[in-house]
């Protein structure tokens, strides 16, 4: 049973709050991981920048790099007007990055491998896009679905495709992150399981366990890359979608 590769995604209640207004709002290991993510990211950013050094310390340098990384990403995708969303995109990037990296520790819960979490985050992005787009551009926001330079007959067809692609954005955004983290962790667990089960077969098995061990080491490195990459991809796509809210006409 311990070898069940999906066991790591199971939520366990730490503080049961099973009936709050008819909802089960128990504090689970998932909640703990979220709190840990936020606490780690906040305290790192807080203490690293506490000295406000003109010449940055190592920690401050990391915080500044993260800031400038996200800032240039957002500026490139959505222009200077996009900078109003900077705290939002920065928070998303840092939250997902730290959650992904924390998930790499054995026995730690990976928040971003929960579809509901990634879906909530992407719905937050799309909600922001729609609310801001409509508030700023009103009906013109619908111009997002009608690209320029399309012959009149094709408009309904193209608009339909654009609407479908817009609606599929939160799904693709959430599933990309969720599936990457989930698959990575399952793969790691499966290969790690091979090591255990093979080495229990005696001397020959221990020899045979070397291959999955090498695989696990290599995959761990890959997973760290994926952790960063998925946070980056999520943030970049957020920037691009926000650009649509700022400049709806193609």
């Amino acid at each position: 049973m311990a070898n069940d590769p999906t066991a790591q995604f199971v939520t366990n209640k730490i503080i049961p709050l099973e009936n709050v207004g008819g909802l089960d709002l128990s504090f689970t290991n998932s909640s703990l991981a979220m709190v840990g993510t936020v606490a780690l990211a906040s305290s790192f950013l807080y203490f690293a920048t506490a000295k406000r050094g003109l010449i940055p310390s190592r920690g401050q340098s990391i915080a500044e790099s993260a800031y400038e990384f996200v800032a240039s990403m957002l500026r490139d995708a959505a222009g200077t007007e996009g900078m109003r969303f900077f705290p939002f995109v920065f928070s998303l990037f840092m939250f997902i990055l730290v959650a992904n990296l924390l998930g790499m520790f054995p026995y730690f819960f990976t928040v971003t491998a929960q579809i509901i979490v990634t879906f909530a985050l992407s719905m937050l992005v799309m909600g922001t896009v729609v609310v801001y787009g409509v508030a700023k551009h009103g009906v013109k926001f619908l111009g997002l679905f009608v690209p320029d330079g399309i012959p009149g007959i094709l408009i309904p067809l193209v608009a339909a495709i654009e609407v479908i692609s817009f609606l599929s954005r939160p799904i693709s955004l959430s599933i990309r992150l969720f599936a990457n983290m989930l698959a990575g962790h399952i793969t790691l667990k499966v290969f790690a399981g091979f090591i255990v089960s093979m080495s229990s077969l005696g001397a020959f098995g221990i020899g045979g366990a070397i291959l999955p061990l090498v695989m696990v080491v290599a995959l761990t490195g890959l997973e760290f890359l994926v952790s960063f990459l998925q946070a980056y991809v999520f943030a970049v796509l957020t920037c691009m979608y926000l650009n649509d809210a700022l400049h709806p006409s193609h």
Partner: peptide, 30 residues
């Protein structure tokens, strides 16, 4: 496990609290 809808309410609730705090902390302080 990730599709276990019984955990959704709790996860959403705690995500809202933690991410909400994080968003606030980032935009007000960091």
């Amino acid at each position: 496990p990730p599709f276990d809808t019984s955990t959704f309410a709790s996860q959403l609730f705690w995500l809202a609290i933690t991410f909400g705090f994080f968003l606030w902390f980032m935009s007000k302080v960091i």
